[in-house]
Structures are given as C-alpha cells and as structure tokens.
Amino acid sequence: MSLIVKKVAQLITGFIFLYGIYIIVHGHLTPGGGFAGGAIVAGAYILQTLAFGRDTLLLKKKETNTSLSESISILIALMLAGAGFFIGTKVFFNNYLPTGKIGDLVSAGTIPLYNIFIGIEVAAALLTIFLALLIYKEEIEE
C-alpha cells in the first residue's frame, strides 16, 4: 500500500482498538457487548494487516496465535458456565456472583466476564477466517 494509507492506518488503528475494548467492557451498561466489540477489534487488526502485512511467514505465525486464543477463550467461557453447577443452585449458566447496583461498572454478576471472553472469541475467529483467506492467496501466487 502507499505511504498515505500506511500513515493513516498507523494513526487510526489504536483508537479503533480502544473503542472496541470500551464497547466490550461497557457491554452491560451501554449498547454493544461481546459480539460488537469483538468484531470492532477484529476490524482494527484487519486494517493493520491490509495496510502493512505481506509477509507470509508472519501471517502464519499470527494465524496460529489467533486460532489458539479462540480455542482457549471459548473453553474458559464454557468453564465459567459449568462452574454454575458447583456454586449456589445447581443450574448451568447460573449467575452466581453478586449482582450489585444497576449502572455500576462492576455489576451484573458474571455477565461482564462472559462479555470479555465472547469478545476475544469473536475477534479471534473473524481474524482467523481473514488470515486463512490471505495466506491462501499468497500460497497460490507462489
């Protein structure tokens, strides 16, 4: 890509990333949540990759990392849900933490935790799909 695209991508990526994290963390207070925030974070990485990345080896390394973090975060979300079996009333997806006051950042029990891990999972999955397409294209051209 040209110099202008690279410079603008450099300036903007950080803000998009921060906005995605804000959307994820405030998912139980304002519009948004894990799905929206995860997609925005993935969008920040996609912008960065489109502007800079052409190195196949680096892309493959990145793809291994995203695939791994996706698997780990969905496992943690499943374990959080399964922990409801052992704490309080024995129900899957039980909200076992104290709910707190409506409107506080730390409130709503387990919902912010689910938000965070689903956000990581969505971001990593979308990025994996995108990187797989890109690596395929590079390998065809070789």
């Binding site: 949540g33 799905f35 799909i129 797989a132 397409l133």
Partner: peptide, 17 residues
Amino acid sequence: VLTAIVIGLATTAMLMA
C-alpha cells in the same frame, strides 16, 4: 437477531471459502 447476525457472517465466510 444479535446471535443470528454473527452466525450469518460465519456461514457467508465458509460459503465464500
């Protein structure tokens, strides 16, 4: 609908692949 939108993206990406 929120879950359905993300599932739609997943199926579209898979079909495109």
